[in-house]
Nucleic acid binder design. Structure first.
Lengths: 167, 167
DNA sequence: TATTGTTATACTCTATAACTATA
DNA sequence: TATAGTTATAGAGTATAACAATA
């Protein structure tokens, strides 16, 4: 399998944003919010990419598998979940199906539609890959203290969650 | 410019890792370290992708520009900085050069080598894009308190920096 | 011989546009 | 007409392998 797109040797060093604008680092070790998050995101993506590549997958496939772990969506819904065009998802699913990792079955109610599901082999691979991804990402935070990890977990969740609905 | 790869509508919702393994969320709003970081990384990448697309660039180009903001490396060095194969960098630089954003000049000392630099137009675009990327990423953290943002900045920096050298 | 960079080739990912088959 | 999905096409991004030129 020579061509698994993102095998990234290991998190490279690429600033991307040189904190030109808003953020203002308060200590020498502080990259600033923007650069810090940008670099962190590349590091996480690199880690995920390594894991994916180790299983002969790409990050896109890994995401697909993550979504399918507890759903059997149609193509349109899948496109929405992944933030991709439906035609992109066609290809993504095609390639996974060709490898026996997912299956398309006709929707019971709508004869235009299909339902996409992981095969047993796909589930197996998804379990292994997500577990390993967990270990790799966790390893990135290996030298933080438990308290720092807990903090980070909360802050990351808060950012992703968006503004609190009511409270 | 119809084909600027990652225009991502906006951060989609893709768990990727379902916290199968190590992490253990302590509160209901806590996604766990792994899922939180994974989703955060996708959100940041999506934000960067939007900005890049708005300027007719891809994330890869944006990274290239970030690296070139304060360097004039050779192709090999550039490949190392970006974590890519030199042949990939050839293409990346080709496309940017075709648009007049970077320039290849012969290395003074080694007649095999070239030096890659941003053109004036490239610098301009790099300034605008990185500033805008800063605003976008910053916006992701809009509903955090100042103290939380400062924390996050430090934690992200610490993760990326790796274990402290001596201290 | 080793290194720098390019080219040839191939594959994934992504999008837009056009199409088919239902609803 | 509108929606679900596929196909055709095209460009970016990436890698491996083979190559040319220079050290």
């Amino acid at each position: 399998m020579p061509h698994t797109t993102p095998p990234r040797p290991s998190a490279p060093e690429a600033p991307v944003a040189h904190a030109t604008a808003p953020s203002s680092p308060s200590s020498p070790d502080d990259l600033g919010l923007v650069d810090g998050l940008a670099q962190l995101s590349f590091a996480v993506q690199a880690a995920l990419g390594e894991v994916a590549a180790a299983h002969g997958l790409s990050i896109a496939q890994l995401r697909l598998f993550g979504v399918l772990r507890d759903r059997e969506p149609g193509m349109q819904e899948l496109a929405r979940l992944l933030g991709l065009d439906k035609s992109s998802v066609s290809g993504l699913v095609d390639r996974a199906e060709r490898r026996g990792l997912v299956r398309r079955s006709p929707s019971p109610h709508d004869r235009r539609a299909v339902r996409v599901a992981l095969t047993e082999q796909g589930h197996q691979l998804a379990r292994e890959a997500t577990a390993e991804a967990g270990r790799h990402v966790h390893a990135l935070a290996a030298h933080l203290t438990d308290a720092q990890r807990a903090q980070l977990s909360l802050l990351a969740s808060a950012m992703v969650a968006g503004p609190l609905p009511t409270a």
